[in-house]
Amino acid sequence: MARAQVSKVKKDRRITWKEVKRQKALLIISFFMVVYGFIFYYLPLTGWVMAFQNYKPKNGLLGSKFIGLDKFKFLFSDATFIKVIRNTFCMGALNLLTTTLMAILFAILLNEIRNSVVKKTIQTVSYLPHFLSWIIVTGILHDALSSTGIINDLLMRAGIIKQAINFFAHTQYFWPIVAFANCWKETGWNAIIYLAAITSIDPCLYEAASIDGAGRLAKIRYITLPGIKPTIIILLLMNVGNVLNAGFEVQYLLGNGLVQSVSQTIDIYVLKWGISQNDYSLGTAAGIFKSAVSIALIMLSNAWAKRAGEERLF
């Protein structure tokens, strides 16, 4: 029986003229999809050559002079770029950590609410910020933190500060502001998946725990948390590969000259050098560095996932 199935599968995979004719429609669609994917996703990779050239638009990719690793050497001797790497990593890690913790906390506490109308209402409210663009989110955040904004207002009324703080002028506030912005926008959205994981926990476990006299806190600690642990690990690992990608919009929109040393990320650096200063080679080199680190992080997290006994990511 098993052998028959294997041979059937093998037969299906064999490319025969008859099959080609039968699957003509699929093959035609695939052809266009591959052409499209090749142009828009694979062709830009040839641009990586620029990183090893002193690229001049008038000479083109083939005519520009090769200079080896000079652009990379320049990057790593540039004190600004070292800071940029630090900023990208630290903000990415801080965001990942805070948004994950907030989402888990929110999901667990929301799950404890018995009244389904209240629960549904809170959840609907919680999705709202996800649907707003970063333009809007940074705009209202800017309002809230301005000298006449609600935060300064509250702090002064509470007597904690005497004078309004200009939050966007001091470097020490920038990373927490970015982390808060991410939490504000995505907590409800990220909690969806954890809530789904909590729902799939066997209710018998909770009943059994009740009979044994466990309180709600104990149930959260010994049933809910272990129950969603695989989801937490998988999502964390999936997002580790994206840490470097999460560093553009907020930083670009909220950053200013005063906090530049902590707000600039790799993407902003690429934009500044590559597009504004027209140094395509340097911009590409910085982009390659980012891609390489991202792929390394993905492979690393994949290996971790395997060791942790979880599903592999891809």
Partner: peptide, 15 residues
Amino acid sequence: ITMYVNGGMIPTFML
């Protein structure tokens, strides 16, 4: 593969 590897901002812009 396209989920993990991409040319980056500058080559994409030029394309």
